[in-house]
Write a protein that binds this DNA or RNA. Structure first.
Lengths: 216, 216
DNA sequence: GGTCGAATCAGGGGGTTCCCTCATGGTGGA
DNA sequence: TCCACCATGAGGGAACCCCCTGATTCGACC
């Protein structure tokens, strides 16, 4: 049985590499290099599997996550295999949360990639060995740090996130206040709430927290 | 005129992508996926150009730099075109310092990559537009931020470096003082000297400075 | 229509950070 | 020997950070 796929990656070189690496029983019926054309291409071609670059630029939610949001929540949705240079826990968990059925890094070999596509097409979940741990941690009983990453961020209101980002970049309260056209006291209030919600004790820990999650 | 190249990248997919993206007048005469086989392959095949992944794992100097060190300093050395997902200034400058004649990111198109290979083969230096600035900064008259990295660190005495590391990690003056068994005032003095010597204005910039140089 | 959360702002207090000057003792080179 | 540099430390001040209480406005929700 031939599996139909659409490849989404902004790098020409990598799209070519993936296309040429796939076995003959996998048919590439479309390609896209940005969020908009990916969504259009996937809807038009209705592939069984989408091979999706996690670090796709553009969109409002980080690229790949936008594509997943647009494409998955409708009947006949394809299975999505995420492809990434990164094996950072945050990326993996965020992508899987968004609905990806597999996550492999670009260090995968051609035959293994073809195998992963076939297995995702039949409904399996496919993860590189060292990534499986992250996923299990994130969805396991204990939850773990990684799983809490997105939920922690969700606890913050939009304004709090905005302030948090600036503080994490090292701006003083005064500078944040000037940037956002609010008073210093308001900035203090927001920062206080952020620190409390994230259970951090000062702005340095906040900067570290944000850096780990690639928020800054 | 046909240009001979060796492709060095630990990712199968990317090697395939590069190979398939290159024009017919560029002949891939060898490939390698780690430092040792890259050095051996380049010496054996003597290509005109080596396409080298900057983030090659293994070796003692960061992978790609080891390959450059081994290969360049002998007669008949090939021209090296660095290929990277990263456009971070540190990576670019370190690679160029080590002798690469070009640096392009993986977002390059197939035709542009072929063109870059041909130009490097003829002796040109090839840099993506936004990378050229880094290189010029680093080698220009003023020296530039990047080039000054190690020299800046050398300006600090051992004690100052010790204090600087702890401050960059977010310890308060009090905590640093307790850790080093000195008074807070001494810590203040050291920090003040560090900030002055590095021409930084506060501990946040110091943390950022240290993080960029992977000191912390 | 009352309640609740989000966003805004104020006052005040205690600790921290950064800068300035100044001082002492040790070490190592000219 | 003397000077330069380093490590140590003190005093004081201005600004900044963090926390506390308390307040108003506005929109959403039941």
């Amino acid at each position: 049985m031939t599996v139909s796929v659409v490849i989404v990656d902004d790098h020409d070189v990598i799209r070519v590499g993936v296309r040429e690496s796939l076995d003959d029983d996998i048919s590439v019926i479309g390609e896209a290099r940005d969020v908009e054309s990916a969504v259009a291409e996937i809807r038009a071609k209705a592939p069984q599997v989408v091979i999706l670059d996690v670090h796709l630029p553009g969109g409002t939610g980080g690229g790949a996550l936008d594509v997943l949001a647009e494409v998955l929540h409708r009947p006949g949705a394809p299975r999505v295999l995420a492809l990434s240079v990164s094996d950072a826990a945050e990326d993996v968990v965020a992508t899987v949360r968004a609905g990806a059925r597999g996550y492999v890094t670009k260090s995968i070999s051609g035959p293994d990639l073809s195998d992963a596509v076939r297995r995702v097409a039949t409904g399996d979940a496919v993860f590189s060995p060292r990534l499986a741990g992250f996923v299990l941690d994130a969805f396991g009983a204990a939850g773990g740090e990684v799983a809490a990453a997105d939920e922690d961020l969700d606890k913050l209101t939009e304004r709090e996130q905005e302030v948090m980002r600036l503080i994490a970049r090292g701006y003083t309260y005064r500078e944040v206040a000037e940037k956002l056209f609010i008073s210093i006291k308001t900035v203090e209030t927001h920062v206080g709430k952020v620190l409390h919600k994230l259970q951090l004790s000062n702005r340095h820990e906040l900067a570290h927290w944000a850096a780990q999650r690639r928020i800054v």
